[in-house]
Amino acid sequence: MGLATLEAPRTETLEPPPEFQLDSGRVFTTHPESDERQPEQLSTQARAQVRLLPPRKERNHAVDTSLEPLQEWEGVVEWLEGDTFGARLTDLTSPGEDEFTEFALNEVSDHDLALAVTGAVFYWTIARETSRFGQRRHVSMIRFRRLPAARAALRIDVQREAESIADELGISSNGADAAFA
């Protein structure tokens, strides 16, 4: 999955107030995305707002965040030019006429890059990510569709109908080859 932080205007990034830890009698400000802790000179008023937190643990930030999709599209890659690709987008959030736009290939994760070919289907999501500590940021995610598992029963049905159509339409062999033999 491609995950990119949008370069949002400052007003869009909701920065929560720093949280404070009391550790061995010293006060530190902490940031959920950083291991750096800085001694802090606190006013009496600020100290009154300090919450006591449990001892710091190593956390997996990936599971500490929640994503709230704001807008989702299903896209189909229609053209590739240099390091960009163009796509036709179907709005999954608020259906309407299809739209077009372009993406840079570097917006696609390395994991999905090989899937970005003409005709490929992908999902584009703009979401609000909220950390365990309430920090919010906006993210743009591109996820390419992978092959569905083959369904044997369906394939048998398809084959049966296809042969029936080919018989009815008189397609007895590869006519394109036969016609010019």
């Binding site: 296809a162 080919a166 339409l169 397609i171 007895s172 394109a176």
Partner: peptide, 13 residues
Amino acid sequence: NALNRRDFPAFVL
């Protein structure tokens, strides 16, 4: 005529 192939209906379906 390029679509005049036995396997084309299967593909389309």
